[in-house]
Simulated scan of single mutants.
Amino acid sequence: MIDLSALPSLRESLETHGLLANKGLGQHFLLDLNITRKIARLAGPLEGRMVLEIGPGPGGLTRALLEAGARVVAIEKDARFLPLLNTLQEASGGRLEVHLADALKVDEAVLSAGEPASVVSNLPYNVGTALLIKWLTGPWRPQSMTLMFQKEVAERIVARPGDDAFGRLALIAQVMCEARIVMDAPARAFTPPPKVDSAVVRLDPRSDPPEPSRVAAMEAVSQAAFGQRRKMLRSSLKALGGADLCEAAGIDPTRRAETLSLDEFLRLADARLQRAN
């Protein structure tokens, strides 16, 4: 383990450098190390493991990950935070690597040098969903993900069939991973406080995820089905085969998208693939 107690507090570091959150980049800082340490614990045993962190900002979660024994690759888009992160890098004993880059554009396989890695991040609100979809659909996929989202987004990720929040995000997340909310974070925990509460979602890849072709077909089906979620499947899926597609998958065409299980969406995907061949 590493002792970072000699470093200035996060709040002191921000004040020294005159740094404020950039709302345009979706920044809200977690300065309470008790909270960041809890997130690191929720990510599981980290000793000796490689972790990718997106948007470290002043480095609160980064400190907790290093204290837990992780080797951290941090991707930061805002160059203002490089002096703070460089100071942390110098104290890390060679276990922190910092990249100034846009996480939506980086090649994680290159950054991790082909080594298995987990993602643990307090994600910027404005790109959180896009990053999750990127990691779920590959080609690079993490060993696990422990991610902070707006609470509404977190609830959409873990929603079950029949829930009002069940949609395409829940479908792709749960087909690829076991997903659960492991921690709530009230708005007051952040600086500056956002207008909404947040939550941490833990996602662990399934041992038998569907093949990429099935995932692509399922995404096409779900886009059509949830794009007109108030309509029966025979109508919302009309462009893909409508009632015939449903019957080929053994599904009642009068049902609606939010009532279908994960397996039923995969059956629709398989029926679509068969029609394409």
Score class of each variant (00 low, 15 high):
residue 105 K to S: 15
residue 248 A to H: 09
residue 262 L to W: 05
residue 123 L to Y: 03
residue 250 G to Y: 09
residue 84 L to Q: 04
residue 3 D to V: 02
residue 12 E to K: 01
residue 154 A to M: 12
residue 165 A to H: 10
residue 103 A to E: 11
residue 103 A to Q: 07
residue 18 G to K: 00
residue 167 G to Y: 08
residue 268 L to Q: 07
residue 13 S to A: 14
residue 85 L to H: 01
residue 246 C to R: 06
residue 138 G to R: 13
residue 64 A to L: 02
residue 143 Q to F: 05
residue 181 I to N: 11
residue 194 P to Y: 09
residue 228 Q to G: 05
residue 57 G to R: 00
residue 225 A to Y: 11
residue 29 F to H: 00
residue 112 S to G: 13
residue 44 G to Q: 11
residue 254 T to S: 13
residue 33 L to M: 02
residue 166 F to Y: 15
residue 26 G to L: 06
residue 208 D to R: 14
residue 152 E to G: 11
residue 15 E to R: 14
residue 120 V to L: 14
residue 236 S to C: 09
residue 105 K to H: 07
residue 206 R to I: 10
residue 121 S to A: 15
residue 113 A to C: 12
residue 160 R to T: 08
residue 84 L to S: 04
residue 164 D to K: 15
residue 246 C to T: 05
residue 116 P to M: 15
residue 163 D to R: 13
residue 167 G to C: 08
residue 62 T to D: 14
residue 77 K to T: 04
residue 96 L to K: 03
residue 121 S to E: 03
residue 188 R to C: 05
residue 161 P to R: 08
residue 266 L to Q: 09
residue 217 A to L: 15
residue 251 I to T: 06
residue 239 A to K: 14
residue 172 I to H: 09
residue 173 A to M: 13
residue 124 P to A: 04
residue 272 R to F: 04
residue 43 A to M: 11
residue 76 E to N: 04
residue 201 V to E: 15
residue 236 S to E: 07
residue 195 K to R: 15
residue 22 N to W: 00
residue 160 R to V: 13
residue 155 E to S: 09
